[in-house]
Amino acid sequence: MSNKLLEIKNLTTSFRIGDDYYAAVDDVTLTLNKNEVLGIVGESGSGKSALAFSIMRLHNRAKIEGSVLLNNQDIVNMPTTNLNKLRGDDMAMIFQDPLTALNPLMEIGEQIGETLLLHNPRMTQKQRKLRVIELLNLVGIPRPEYVFEQFPHELSGGMRQRVVIAIAIANDPELLIADEPTTALDVTIQAQILDLIRKLKNEMNAGIILITHDLGVVAEMADRVAVMYAGQIVEIAEVHTLFENPLHPYTKSLLNSVPTEGQDKLHVIQGIVPSLKNLPRKGCRFAARIPWIDASAHEENPVLHEVELGHFVRCTCHAHFYFSDESKEDEKNGIS
């Protein structure tokens, strides 16, 4: 039996601005295996959250092309009724902000129970309550019977995020998408939530897509990592390879801009992330941010190259890339 859980092929998600469509996710191809954590890293505007939302088709008004196969069922072209059977059951999502992800006027028990109710119509109310309490226990919420009747505003941020996780794992999903699950939390709470996700992964045998801007979180959690820039995957590799042998100029730059031991000066990437409307439609999207690299180093239509087994890099420019010392000087004048 194949171990493959999710297969994304040439996924493009575009939003309409004015009369034109702009691709926030551009031609993304990915696979995720069972019991695997795939980290997706990128800065704001890289399209990582748009990708997560596309997988579950949660965008309100977006044009989605390509295919997303969950256990060989195509989500992109599925009728909504079928999609609703998968959402919350086979695939689920943990959201970034636990303050806003919960309905302020609904009891915690009801909010978790709703997921159970939608997918297990035969469950009695009593069974549902038992399962909710079991879930609250599982995510480490003390006094679950009491919390069951509480409202979101009565819980701390960390506790609310546990509730969001309980909603996501209620029906033992095969695919769990965590969209910046710890960004809104304090570090000690973050550590606890990450431990919880790790524990759940081992117990549920689920595939997890972990979206984050925090390279430390990826280093701790992921088996494989995809780096996104301006809607595209620029590099994808097994986690050790990516951190020890990064190839794409963007990956290298990103890793160098994180404060670590013994650095006097952090690396600064020149220029700014292009907005959706200003994305170059042709050529290497990162070229504008490494202007000291000769134009001939870039491909005309950059594609992902498999440089070693399982390690893909977009564009040929990585072979010619070096860090420039003058980047600081240029940057002063490079106000756009």
């Binding site: 280093a219 701790e220 050790h240 890793l255």
Partner: peptide, 15 residues
């Protein structure tokens, strides 16, 4: 100690 221990390490080998 708890605070320092909570910082994720950027080296995956230290995981």
């Amino acid at each position: 100690k708890r605070l320092v221990a909570a910082i994720p390490d950027i080296n995956p080998r230290m995981r």
